[in-house]
Write a protein that binds this DNA or RNA. Structure first.
Lengths: 144, 144
DNA sequence: ATTCTTGCAAAAGATTTGCAAACAA
DNA sequence: TTGTTTGCAAATCTTTTGCAAGAAT
């Protein structure tokens, strides 16, 4: 059933890419697959090192291009913090997470609060809301 | 009264720096003063170009060092997004803002919602909350 | 006097780009 | 076939660092 799920995800990915006129490639699939497997939000470098196991000739530039392509077609999202490198995630619908100030690990928060949160937000007149992002900073269990 | 306010701010800055064993310098004061004047959240480059008007010999590295010093003593805060460069702000108590996806301009949101927001946040067990950050993404009046 | 800061140039880290060959549609 | 992607190297952009001279405490 794990395999079937993966196959479904790849079909969905194919469609999402197709809508943007982008091709489905082994490298792209590998990057997407890795993002689906990990439980945290890796940097491009991390993705590169992991995907290289299966595709030894892949380059870091290709990983960057593919992460960009995945974000572009909506299959992944980019999370940027002050720690140098950007992080990537397959989920585009999670806007709530915690980030450890020591180890940098990111974990998702319950999305329940989101609905209520939206009611509280009062953007300035004329501002067209497209998305929102809530980040809770602190120290995780193993770092505190 | 504008001048007096500036003088007060500088006195406060002196104290904040002193607590960390940091010196008060013309360059540092100029960077801090600029952050106090602007209505948006500039990048280090922007600060550099602006401060250079009054201190033509200042270097970009000095601006970076001073922004870091200001953040270190609590006189400023650093805001990091996916658009390449970090942005800085004198206020350290504003965690709610909007960011335009087109021009990158950042404006503050009413902090009222913060109190209620905190009640909604349920971090994982063992996570020690230090800070939080809410960002609303979209298009500002002039860009939409 | 001692310690910190400046300015410069060089270095480092992350990400992007140009291009010819390879691949997907 | 046509347009996109790959891999490589070089380039770019942001930020940091080493160091001697200068400024603040």
């Amino acid at each position: 059933m794990k395999r079937q799920r993966q196959a479904e995800q790849m079909t969905v990915l194919r469609e999402m890419l197709d809508l943007r006129g982008a091709h489905f490639t082994r490298q792209r699939a590998a990057v997407f697959d890795y993002l689906n497997r990990v439980d945290h939000h890796p940097t491009a470098e991390e993705v590169f090192l992991a995907v290289k196991q299966g595709l030894p000739r892949i380059s870091l530039a290709t990983v960057y291009k593919n992460l960009e392509a995945l974000v572009g077609c909506g299959a992944a999202s980019k999370l940027t913090y002050g720690d140098g490198a950007a992080r990537y995630d397959v989920r585009t619908d999670h806007h709530y997470h915690t980030r450890c100030l020591k180890c940098g690990r990111i974990t998702d928060l319950e999305p329940e609060a989101g609905k209520q949160l939206l009611k509280l937000i009062k953007p300035p007149r004329g501002f067209k809301v497209e998305d929102y992002h809530l980040e809770v900073l602190g120290y995780c269990k193993s770092c505190s």
